[in-house]
Nucleic acid binder design. Structure first.
Lengths: 176, 176
DNA sequence: TTGACATAATTAGCTGGCTAATTATAATTC
DNA sequence: GAATTATAATTAGCCAGCTAATTATGTCAA
């Protein structure tokens, strides 16, 4: 997501803000810090999952299925919830089906539809992965108190609201 | 990075933590919230840059060059600082060179080496993009006070330290 | 001075995202 | 009830990452 490893020093930020007076140095600094840490956490999660032969995309599908009453959902619904295109979901399901973790069930009444069901093997896989994931995550967050977590969430809510401000305005550009 | 759009409700988290007692519900919740917001911020940044005909990878390269005294660096150094492989950096430089934003300068003394220089057009591009980026970011962070930013950074530092805990331990897995 | 190793950049080929087009089926409307 | 429109999933092809292999060059020690 953010690959940049060499975050700007105070000196660099000052240099840039001298040329670009619009810059809010502490905003830039916090923003980059956030992206850096989030990106590293995501990589750590990937590393954890890969020890179980999974990647994030497939893992989320298994979790979404487990959330359902009977472990069943539709590709279009899964795509929506997982935040990927339907085409990508087709690929994820292909992979999971190859490994026997989910199965396709063709609908007799509406032959356009296909249901996806978590198999026993899929549930077993989750039963291996989730305790490992939860244990690691618990340790990772151990140093952050409940109060800090609440504060943290509150700030994230504000940032999230600010994204509309980021998206809006500015509409130049042509070439490249 | 994190595509998952359907974050777990309290009920879902409780259901999962009943099956997996290792789960720390508030930790999971904060973790996912962090990844979700960071991911959306990154997408907003992409949207901003694409209005200027850039993508994050190339944009970071321009910025890294601008940080240098004479706007000059080496592909290997840029790859290191940008956090991408050298092969990827070759591709990024190819694209930037095609658009005339950087140029390759072949070293006469050590013919393995190539220097990359920010061109005048590259600097102009930055002079268009950066004010737009800084303005949007300022607005996005406007609701977060300096105190909150400090607090936020402090928590990020703790989380970052916790990543080692996340990476460590657990070493099962075979197939798939 | 030459053989082994080290270093720099690039190329080749893989993967998992994406969008757009396609296939199949259902629903609606004239 | 035939034609149009809508919906579901898939296929085809693009792109930007990656690793591993390759090409080219330099360095050092016997």
């Amino acid at each position: 997501m953010l690959q940049l490893r060499d975050l700007p020093s105070k000196a660099v930020l000052d240099k840039f803000s001298a040329r670009y007076p619009e810059a809010d140095v502490s905003a830039v600094s916090s923003f980059l810090h956030l992206l850096r840490v989030a990106s590293d956490l995501s990589l750590a999660l990937d590393a954890c999952l890969s020890q179980h032969g999974l990647l994030q995309g497939r893992w989320w599908v298994l979790i979404l299925l487990m959330r359902e009453e009977h472990g069943i959902s539709l590709p279009s619904v899964l795509a929506e919830k997982a935040g990927v295109s339907r085409a990508t979901m087709t690929g994820l399901i292909d992979g999971l089906e190859r490994n026997g973790l989910v199965e396709r069930i063709f609908d007799k009444d509406d032959r356009r539809r296909v249901s996806i069901r978590l198999t026993a093997a899929g549930q077993e896989k989750l039963d291996q992965v989730m305790p490992d994931y939860y244990t690691r995550l618990r340790q990772c967050m151990a140093a952050v108190s409940e109060e800090e977590r609440d504060l943290f969430n509150g700030i994230l809510v504000k940032l999230n609201a600010g994204i509309t401000a980021f998206d809006a305005s500015g509409n130049r550009h042509p070439d490249t």
